[in-house]
């Protein structure tokens, strides 16, 4: 086996794994580490269902090799809630019915979190372009945009 030993931090935990050189981060997360929240919708970086953050940068984990995260910090959907307390984005997605089938939801949440941490007060257009790398086939995006707007307000601490 041509395994590469990788040491990384995932959602705050130190993790070590072996992977083959050609294995994607998505495959490592799902098949080696049991973190199945990132989904494979295309495998070509077109749908965003596998979105995670590596060293603070939003990426499609199907386009990153597992070996590339050596020494880096990985954030996935499994680390978004704190214990049993949901992140405001998670709360607002539920409140606004911003998901139907839910397969794209982990990717949208990661992308929205990344967007709001970079831009706490985005316009509707900025939200729409900020999430344009994530495909949703069920909702028509309306309720997703509203959920992100509402979550942004909560995260800024504005009065409702």
């Amino acid at each position: 086996m041509n395994g590469i030993a990788v040491s990384t931090a995932i959602n705050g935990d130190d993790i070590e794994f072996l992977c083959r050189p050609e294995e994607t981060l998505l495959t490592v997360l799902r098949d080696r580490l049991g973190l199945m929240g990132a989904k494979e919708g295309c495998g070509t970086g077109d749908c965003g269902a596998c979105s995670v953050r590596v060293d603070g940068r939003l990426v499609c984990s199907c386009l990153v090799l597992g070996a590339e995260v050596q020494g880096q910090v990985v954030e996935t959907i499994e680390g978004m809630a704190s214990g049993d307390s949901l992140h405001p984005l998670q709360e607002k997605f539920l409140e606004h019915a911003a998901l139907q089938c839910g397969i794209c939801t982990p990717g949208f949440l990661m992308a929205a979190k990344d967007l709001l941490e970079r831009n706490p007060d985005p316009s509707e257009e900025e939200i729409r372009f900020g999430l344009a790398g994530n495909l949703c086939r069920c909702t028509g995006y309306d309720k997703i945009v509203r959920a992100v707007q509402d979550a942004a307000q909560v995260m800024r601490g504005d009065a409702a």
């Binding site: 996935t76 998670q90 998901l99």
Partner: peptide
């Protein structure tokens, strides 16, 4: 809902 916003919901490949 909670399963689906936390990545716990199990789809065909999960």
């Amino acid at each position: 809902g909670v399963d689906k916003v936390t990545g716990r919901a199990r789809y065909g490949a999960d």
